[in-house]
């Protein structure tokens, strides 16, 4: 029996969903990004200046954001 949504499913047969980072790479990725973030936070804390806010703060924040998401996935809480 075919329904419209089943046809949609069949039509998309060639494009299964793969995440950008596979399950067994999540820990490496998450750990690396969190480590980068930690290093940058340390650097910023040693030299808190207005110019360091965008230069160090932005990459450190982004690394922490993505690192935390991958780390929570790596430990089994798939968000």
């Amino acid at each position: 029996m075919s329904t419209p949504l089943l046809n949609v499913w069949e039509a998309a047969a060639s494009s299964p969903f793969y995440p950008p980072v596979s399950k067994n790479q999540q820990f490496t990725f998450g750990f690396l990004l969190l480590l980068i973030s930690l290093v940058l936070v340390t650097v910023f804390s040693l030299n808190r200046s207005f110019i360091n806010l965008p230069i160090i703060g932005v990459p450190a924040s982004l690394a922490f954001g993505f690192g935390a998401v991958y780390m929570i996935c790596a430990v089994g809480v798939y968000v």
């Binding site: 793969y18 998401v69 996935c73 968000v79």
Partner: peptide
């Protein structure tokens, strides 16, 4: 539960 980030 569908997780796009975790692919799970």
């Amino acid at each position: 539960e569908v997780s796009h980030w975790g692919g799970n």
